[in-house]
Amino acid sequence: EEWMVEKALMVRTGLGARQIESYRQGAWIEGVHFKRVSPSGESTLRGTTWYNYPEINKFIR
């Protein structure tokens, strides 16, 4: 699984929702560690946020 939603990321990493938000707003790079995608497939600020687990795992190492 490369891309996953927040709940799956929480299960895989043990991070809480606030921790994920903090990383997203600070250290993680949009387009690398996470992306927002609307149902139409376009990038957007209001779409579902998807997280790239392999890239996040590399960051944590």
Rank of each mutant, 00 (worst) to 15 (best):
E1W: 09
E1M: 08
E1S: 10
E1I: 08
E2C: 10
W3Y: 02
W3A: 01
V5T: 15
V5K: 12
V5G: 14
V5I: 10
E6W: 05
K7Q: 12
K7F: 10
K7E: 15
K7N: 09
A8F: 07
A8H: 11
A8R: 08
A8S: 08
L9D: 00
M10K: 06
M10D: 02
M10H: 04
M10A: 07
M10R: 07
M10Y: 04
V11S: 11
V11I: 13
R12K: 12
R12C: 10
R12Q: 07
T13H: 02
T13Q: 02
G14C: 06
G14E: 04
G14H: 05
L15W: 08
L15A: 01
L15Q: 01
L15C: 04
G16T: 15
A17W: 11
R18W: 13
R18P: 09
Q19Y: 04
Q19C: 08
Q19M: 07
I20G: 00
I20T: 02
S22P: 01
S22L: 13
Y23F: 11
Y23I: 02
Y23G: 03
Y23Q: 03
R24T: 12
R24C: 13
R24D: 01
A27N: 08
A27W: 09
A27D: 09
W28L: 02
W28V: 00
I29Y: 04
I29S: 06
I29C: 05
E30A: 05
E30D: 07
E30M: 05
G31V: 04
V32M: 05
H33A: 01
H33C: 02
H33M: 03
H33W: 03
F34T: 02
F34D: 00
K35F: 06
K35C: 08
R36T: 15
R36K: 12
R36V: 15
R36W: 14
V37R: 06
V37T: 10
V37H: 07
V37S: 09
S38T: 11
P39E: 13
P39Y: 10
S40F: 12
S40M: 12
G41E: 11
G41R: 06
E42N: 10
S43Y: 05
S43P: 12
S43M: 09
S43N: 12
T44E: 14
T44V: 09
T44H: 11
R46Y: 14
R46N: 15
R46P: 15
R46S: 15
R46E: 15
R46K: 13
G47D: 14
G47C: 12
T48F: 07
T49Q: 04
T49V: 15
T49M: 14
T49G: 03
T49N: 06
T49Y: 15
W50P: 00
W50V: 13
W50C: 09
N52F: 06
N52A: 03
Y53R: 02
Y53D: 01
Y53A: 04
Y53S: 03
P54G: 07
E55P: 04
E55K: 05
E55F: 03
E55H: 04
I56G: 00
I56S: 00
N57Y: 14
N57H: 13
N57P: 00
F59Y: 07
F59M: 06
I60C: 06
I60M: 13
I60R: 03
I60S: 03
I60L: 15
I60G: 02
